Simulated scan of single mutants.
Amino acid sequence: MSESPITTPTAPAAGLTASTVAVAGHGGDTVEAYLARPEGAARRGGVVVIHHMPGYDRESKEIVRRFAELGYDAICVNLYYREAPGASPDDAAAVSRAAGGVPDDRLVGDVAGAAAYLRALPTSNGRVGVIGYCSGGRQSVLAACSLDVDAAVDCYGAFVTGTVPEGMPLKVTPLVDRLPDLRAPLLGLFGADDSYPGPEQVAELERILTEHGKDFDFHTYEGAGHAFFAVNRPSYNVAAALDGWERITEFYGKHLADPGS
């Protein structure tokens, strides 16, 4: 793990705009996305938010707006748009689960399209980070192994390492063979009481990244389980979530700051 000075991101936004936009995703498909931007013309980094398995929901959009409040252009692609355009998040998630989930190549293509959209904005400083929660945590790592992003955050992503249980409906495989290709610094935030990923899977991930000389920083919260960031679920853990947000803010402040500042 490397050490470098912490710099602050652009000043927290006084105001922001948010809207639904169209993004060129995998295979040139046009997909729906939610974009939030701070007011002003200052150059800044961008953040691609990868939503959790429950889908492109209000909570995911709130996270996008939070990054805009922190001074970043932020976007979240509706990963289930192809299967269920216009459907409610619950219905779209059910359709996606029945189909085995989002294919890895399609996920990478959609995140690449979202990152390109952010970099094409007139306020972009060229730097883009990715962050994902739950299934999106694994997908954030996958994106950072596949694309030229500048920073990645994995919030309790299952099956980056470990073994997928038999009978699981999602067609997902661990990323062990992809980890040597990790291209960006990685922040990992995990719950000690989680099962997927459990502490042993986090330890395996840490070992592999260390063996390959990757830049990473992991933190595990005692007393926290899966989805401790989810404010609308019983799993929400205030202390873990608050500390996690502080770590994310510092991490992106270090890696997404304007290179000319």
Rank of each mutant, 00 (worst) to 15 (best):
A152D: 10
S96Y: 00
G109K: 04
T161K: 03
S146G: 02
G167P: 11
S88M: 11
A143N: 03
N78M: 10
G55D: 10
V111L: 12
S88Y: 03
M53P: 00
E62C: 02
A74E: 13
V102A: 10
E59M: 13
A84P: 07
D90C: 00
L142N: 03
G55C: 12
C155Y: 04
H51R: 08
S140E: 05
C76M: 15
D57V: 06
A87M: 07
V130F: 14
Y72W: 14
P122Y: 11
G113N: 11
L121P: 03
A114E: 09
G132D: 12
A112W: 05
A92W: 05
R119P: 07
L70N: 01
V48N: 04
G46R: 01
R66W: 14
C134E: 07
A84L: 13
D91Y: 00
A68E: 13
P122L: 12
F67P: 08
G157C: 07
G157T: 09
T123C: 07
A144S: 11
L121K: 09
D90I: 09
V47M: 07
I63G: 04
V149T: 02
D148K: 13
R82S: 12
G71Y: 12
D91C: 00
E166Y: 00
Y72D: 07
A112F: 06
V77Y: 03
I75K: 06
R138K: 08
D105P: 00
L147A: 03
G100R: 07
Y80P: 03
G71T: 13
Y72I: 11
P89S: 09
D154A: 06
A99I: 10
A94P: 02
G100C: 11
V108R: 05
A93T: 07
D73G: 10
Y81S: 04
Y72T: 12
Y56P: 01
A84F: 11
R44L: 01
V149N: 01
A74I: 12
